[in-house]
Design a protein around this nucleic acid. Structure first.
Lengths: 162, 162
DNA sequence: ATGAGTGCAAAGGCTTTGCATTAGG
DNA sequence: CCTAATGCAAAGCCTTTGCACTCAT
């Protein structure tokens, strides 16, 4: 898994950062906004997450980057999360997983393998997304709920486990 | 929150168990299918979950039922999960949460409060659900993914936190 | 120099497991 | 009686925190 993401679905409104340099600048800006700097460790974490087209667990981040201390990764992920650079992905199956925030990468969803726990990214067509948002907003209002965003995961069996 | 669920959305295909006696029988059957009995502890857990219209955390289950041992709750939740009676709800914010499986209660989604972490149930209209399923199936096939089901959470601020 | 960031190690907190006891067939 | 479930307590495991050291400004 993680090798085959769908053929670049639709393009989104706030376009994702693809260029490494642009990404770094964007990240630095967001960090500065909360009074933090882009350090070597933080850069390494961001690059690891950017390189993967799926959410990574702490162990994965630790092994990908060179010699990062576990505590530093945890601490910096917290900082990056506050800065809106990374987002914690809910999985609950094993470890916490992290990915670059949707403001940086664009809105997307996850393919979660119920056998091996692998998580991959997917984008759904804009029109489906729009219809869904419209319906959810109605429900939210009805429930006295101030809707911020939604999470949609596709649970099933990945190519590798079939 | 948790007080106000939407006015009984649409009815679903495999209808949910509402009657306590029917529920107990259904649970017993499912347990028997995996070689397990419906014990007092298990009954207490199921009743606690059935009474709430939202996923409960272990502490909540412990306080609701009378004098249950923590380890028993954990162990029996695992058994009930294997039997397809309860499902673990992903939250990752604090504790694991559990609810009766959708085979028992019907397909639904969650309203997750980003401020207080409360989780409540919601059902979305059948037609929206159908459209969504259709779109997701296409994506899944395209990704070589065998789609089993989806998870959809509405994240926002609940009535109590606004 | 001076405060932020880093690393190692120890502590925390939810969850799991071992083992003796008790309940059910 | 004999297997299965329960409860208490201890162990596990991911995550967080304390503290001294290092780096950048």
């Amino acid at each position: 898994m993680s090798g085959g993401h769908p053929p670049e679905g639709a393009s989104h409104a706030h376009q994702e950062t693809t260029d490494p340099a642009v990404l770094a600048h964007d990240v630095a800006t967001r960090l500065a906004a909360v009074g933090q700097r882009l350090t070597a460790t933080r850069r390494a974490i961001v690059e690891a997450l950017a390189a993967a087209d799926r959410p990574l667990s702490i162990p994965e981040i630790l092994s990908s980057g060179a010699g990062l201390a576990q505590s530093s990764v945890y601490r910096n992920l917290a900082v990056l999360e506050r800065a809106g650079v990374v987002a914690r992905v809910i999985t609950m199956d094993e470890w916490a997983r992290f990915e670059l925030s949707e403001e940086l990468t664009g809105h997307h969803h996850h393919l979660v393998c119920s056998k091996c726990g692998a998580v991959d990214d997917v984008r759904i067509p804009d029109d489906v997304e729009a219809d869904l948002d419209r319906a959810l907003e109605i429900l939210a209002v009805r429930a006295g709920f101030l809707l911020q965003h939604h999470r949609l995961d596709l649970v099933g069996v990945c190519r590798a486990c079939r």
